[in-house]
């Protein structure tokens, strides 16, 4: 007894799924599994000791906390930049639009050195700030700054196309109905952009958590003060404490995955609400 073969208007599921799995395995899953395997060299108590040591915890707090703060700042600044780029026509608009992508393309070390020079105590911006008693370079504030720098294009590039598609008419409709400008922004525009905003936030956050190159130049890298988790991993590697390094990496991985997964769910929820495919 043979069942009729299942037919679909979109054939090729088997092939594309197979390629997807192979690709993901080769590039992501197998290397990550290696991480867990290597970490398993440690006993549970060794593992806990490593990841709960003051230095590790502090580095993780710095990485996740500052990445979150930087993503929040990028969210606000990114929205304003997107707004200006999409809604207004001004000379140099295309140039500004292109400049937004520079943090993508610039080697991160170059960015880090540039920021450090700028914000060092004798730098163009660092000197006036120092006279106000604010130290940026070689402090957590510097790390935060570098993370803001590398994260900004993510918010801009994810929100931009959505805002372009958002009809000006819905703002006009809101205005005719008596909504103030503020009400129009908070009740109409922002909710329409929410899915894109969440995606941009998640990307900026993820990038900042994993950022290494630009941060290490400006951070000063003082243990328990301005040391980020990726740097701690590199330090452990240079000490040949491979299992310790992978243990920290595993913690970072799990945390990052949870946060990004959560943001994704939130984004999906906002999107289905907006499109209402209930």
């Amino acid at each position: 007894m043979s069942a009729a073969p299942k037919r679909s208007a979109l054939p090729g599921f088997g092939l594309s799924m197979g390629l997807t799995l192979t690709w993901l395995s080769l590039l992501i899953l197998i290397p990550l599994a290696g991480l867990f395997v290597k970490t398993a060299d440690l006993s549970l108590s060794q593992f806990l000791d490593t990841v709960t040591s003051n230095r590790t915890l502090h580095a993780l707090r710095i990485s996740f906390g500052l990445a979150f703060a930087a993503a929040v700042v990028n969210l606000v600044a990114g929205l304003i930049i997107v707004w200006a780029l999409v809604r207004y026509r001004f000379p140099g608009r295309r140039l500004f639009d292109a400049i937004v992508d520079i943090p993508f393309a610039l080697p991160t070390a170059v960015a880090g050195i540039a920021l450090t020079t700028l914000f060092a105590q004798n730098g163009w911006l660092g000197a006036p700030l120092a006279s106000l008693g604010i130290k940026v370079a070689f402090t957590p504030l510097g790390i935060f700054l570098a993370m803001v720098f590398i994260g900004i294009p993510f918010v801009v590039r994810t929100v931009q196309p959505v805002l372009i598609d958002l009809d000006v008419e819905i703002e006009e409709a809101a205005a005719c109905l008596g909504a103030s400008r503020w009400q129009t922004i908070t009740r109409v525009i922002i909710p329409s952009l929410t899915p894109a905003i969440l995606t941009g936030f998640a990307l900026a956050f993820a990038r900042a958590v994993g950022e290494y190159g630009s941060v290490i130049f400006i951070a000063g890298n003082l243990p328990n003060v301005s040391e980020i988790a990726p740097l701690l991993i590199v330090i452990r590697l240079s000490e040949f404490r491979y299992a310790d390094a992978t243990a920290i990496a595993v913690v970072m991985l799990v945390f990052s995955f949870l946060i990004i997964f959560l943001l994704n769910r939130l984004q999906r929820w906002a999107q289905t609400r907006a499109l209402a495919v209930s």
Binding site: I170, E172, V188, P191, S192, A274
Partner: peptide, 13 residues
């Protein structure tokens, strides 16, 4: 003034 747009301009969210 009540204004009705050609493409409705409803708030989709």
């Amino acid at each position: 003034v009540g204004f009705v747009f050609q493409h409705y301009a409803l708030f989709r969210h």
